[in-house]
Design a protein around this nucleic acid. Structure first.
Lengths: 229, 229
DNA sequence: TAATAAAGTTAGATTAGTCTAACAATTATA
DNA sequence: TATAATTGTTAGACTAATCTAACTTTATTA
């Protein structure tokens, strides 16, 4: 049985592994994400290694073992199912769900999560467009482009966001964007890289930093990769 | 902000206060209920006193302060709302809900519990017939009789149970009893106090220990008392 | 009411998770 | 490649919640 804290470390390692892809995960990265000091992370890494949840040598690479990854994906599954519940059944807005799901994801009951999955009619994605790992702990990742990579003149569909912070999500709302919204890329300014897009027949201007965090569909890059357990 | 553990102590004190009515709550009682040693309870009582959640002097009475009681009732409210959710929406049986609700009751989000209340259509009682404290932290207690006190020949209605353990609840199910079920008391055996009742046109025999844990309505004792905050 | 039993408290130790400060290893760069 | 900067680790301390063992207070009863 894992503690609340151990679960959070595993989740953080899995998250960074996906974000970084090639780059290695560092003690400092984990410390930043978990809001603790690097020294604390060092201690915990030893403990997680002891418990065979990660592979790790001093000053070396941090990777999840099979068990570690299975646990991490289960927590992410719970997090995203709860987010979906809060959004769809309790009328939370998409910028509010994350905070509460951070607590709910630690509830220990296999039956609860299976029943919740059924109650929600086996959703595939959460309110932010993130894929929900299945009951076997498998996660299908579709490699999408972000809005900043889209070509001028093309029309795409928003399918998710990279930044899940309440701040960003409220900004997205304010601009009239949402999941499944159609977006046409009108132009890119060469001087400051501002991007002009058309949404619901209105033209709006967004920054490249903003566009980097909007995930879109594109026909030429629909490769999927399975994070196996 | 209260810790998980502090919340459990407050809840336990409130529970014993209701169960005991007159009798005083002791360190040992709390230790038994919370599955810790009396020494641990002594330590925690000091801490709760420091935080002005209980009134307490060494070797003296333990009572909740206003703040303490408000907190305790809020936790009980959350517990019972979650039990109702699990039972009504996720198809848990009434003997399964308690264990999971013990975890869910500690989730910190006022919005969550208000939305949940609304989603469940403001239920008055949980699946065991226990009254749910309202959003103001008020709890209306109806003083009911138990089946063991009912008179021969009278018909009453089951409205709750005293023992919420999975074991007992499964037994109640097996005998065909449930909330709102009509029960007619046929006879009481003078030798061993076994009680003969009629349920759904069938006659069954129950022990006095069993009957003590079945709460029923009766016309002559509908006094209610409000546990004020 | 004095002796005994029960209940409650204190002291000191333990564990998990955290910290700071000092030190060690790795990486980047002049 | 030697040095500086960055990154990571260790040692020692702290807090919350728990324990055991010893002690104190209160309650019971002979």
């Amino acid at each position: 049985m894992l503690s609340f804290t151990e679960e959070n470390y595993l989740k953080a390692i899995q998250k960074l592994a996906l974000d970084y892809e090639n780059k290695e995960i560092g003690t400092n990265d984990l410390a930043t994400l978990l809001l603790v000091k690097p020294a604390t992370v060092s201690d915990m890494l030893k403990k997680l290694k002891e418990k065979k949840l990660i592979d790790y040598e001093k000053y070396g690479k941090i990777t999840l073992t099979k068990t570690g990854k299975l646990n991490a994906l289960e927590i992410i599954r719970k997090h995203r199912l709860w987010e979906t519940f809060l959004f769809e059944k309790l009328e939370f807005t998409w910028d509010e769900v994350h905070e509460v799901a951070e607590q709910l994801e630690h509830i220990q009951s296999k039956k609860l999560i299976d029943k919740l999955d059924k109650f929600l009619n086996y959703p595939k994605v959460d309110p932010h467009g993130d894929v929900i790992p299945n009951a076997k702990g498998e996660l299908i990742i579709t490699q999408h482009k972000t809005l900043v990579e889209e070509e001028i003149g093309h029309t795409c569909k928003m399918v998710g966001v990279k930044d899940n912070s309440a701040n960003f999500l409220q900004y997205v709302d304010k601009l009239g964007l949402s999941i499944n919204q159609s977006i046409k890329l009108i132009s890119k300014n060469e001087f400051d890289n501002l991007i002009q897009i058309e949404v619901k027949k209105k033209t709006i201007i967004v920054s490249p930093k903003f566009a980097e965090n909007i995930i879109i569909t594109c026909n030429d890059c629909k490769k999927t990769r399975k994070v196996s357990i």
